[in-house]
């Protein structure tokens, strides 16, 4: 770990100015991902700007829905009464992640901005385009179990590890950002990107831009939602695949985790299922359409079956509850 300067600004603007003012600076929130990176040598900033004291830690009910401060701890958000009663998919995506200790530590924005858990990204002795652009991708022909099956590129086949991001994707969340040039908002759907030929960029944020809040619109009356995470062990593991889903009247919304470099909003499937029956056969057929562009290797072929099965399980269950 390189020695760094530690700064603890008082306001979001001060934090943004500190990071924007130096190519060598980075934001530090809960630390559960960044401290890990510092130890492994994936990140070696010269300045760490701690955003823990900025007061971005409130959950507010708004006319449109919910506004979640960037610094709200994952456990606090999952325990929030409104989240529990109205946004089951949000609560469940949070609770499926990591462990209680880490959820106490990790923040909303930090969770969204966590980086891939690809074993080669973490192993500085192997080539990885995300860690070191131009060195090559070790995962494509290597350990594949946690690789993407949708939207991958020759440069990078990894997936985004966040559960929360998948839950927020299906909720059509919006991200509030403060940058050196002022504030802006962007749909969460536009926050994470596909790897293309620049996998070193996880998101569309510019250097120095700070997420200050995430807003979640109100779900339609009678909507039911949930999050299912399929994994090898029963807890404390990243998803092999995950499914976030909302069923509201004729509307079906589905986002997948564990399959792509970003939360994968299954728009083809949603269109296919709109207004129709949500029986197992129909859902499986719609998954097949969504998965048409998928590419798999020997270590990922199972994800086609698994994400299809998980989606069928989740949607048939939600359909039963929505009735």
């Amino acid at each position: 770990m390189r020695r760094f300067e530690y700064a603890r600004p008082r306001t979001p603007q001060e934090a943004v100015d500190l990071v924007a003012g130096s190519d060598d600076a980075a934001f530090l929130a809960g630390g559960s991902n960044l401290v890990d990176h510092l130890k492994v040598g994936i990140a070696s900033p010269g300045v760490l700007v701690d955003v823990g004291g900025l007061g971005l830690d409130r959950v507010e009910e708004t006319d449109g829905g919910l506004r979640i401060g960037a610094g709200v701890r994952n456990s606090d958000l999952a325990a929030h009464p409104v989240v529990r009663s109205r946004y089951a998919v949000l609560a469940r995506s949070l609770l499926a992640g990591a462990s209680a200790q880490i959820r106490h530590q990790a923040t909303t924005a930090g969770n969204l901005l966590q980086r891939t858990r690809c074993v080669y990204f973490y192993d500085a002795t192997t080539p990885c385009n995300k860690r070191e652009p131009g060195t090559g991708c070790s995962a494509v022909d290597g350990y594949q179990r946690y690789n993407a099956i949708l939207g991958a590129s020759a440069a990078c086949v990894t997936v985004h590890p966040s559960d929360l991001a998948v839950g927020l994707a299906v909720l059509d969340a919006t991200v509030e950002v403060l940058g050196p040039d002022g504030a802006r908002t962007l749909p969460l759907a536009d926050l994470h990107r596909l790897p293309g030929d620049s996998p070193e960029q996880d998101t569309t944020l510019a250097h120095g831009e700070l997420i200050t809040a995430v807003t979640v619109p109100r779900l339609p009356e009678g909507a039911v939602s949930t999050y299912y995470k399929a994994r090898d062990r029963a807890s404390y593991a990243f998803a092999l695949v995950s499914v976030a889903a909302v069923v509201a009247g004729d509307e079906v919304r589905v986002a997948w985790g564990g399959v792509a470099h970003r939360p994968w909003r299954a728009t083809v499937l949603e269109e296919a299922l709109r207004g129709g029956p949500l029986d197992e056969e129909t859902v499986r057929a719609a998954c097949l359409e969504e998965l048409a562009p998928a590419t798999t290797g020997p270590g990922t072929a199972f994800k086609l079956e698994m994400v299809t099965g998980a989606t069928a399980m989740v949607l048939t269950d939600l359909a039963g509850r929505a009735r």
Partner: peptide, 25 residues
């Protein structure tokens, strides 16, 4: 322990990627 045939070392080399049973299991 998944040994990468190209490099010759185990790449699932921590407790996040080498899974041992948790309480829940």
């Amino acid at each position: 322990s998944w040994r990468d045939p190209r490099f010759g070392h185990v790449v699932t080399d921590d407790l996040a990627t080498y899974h041992v049973a948790t309480h829940a299991d």
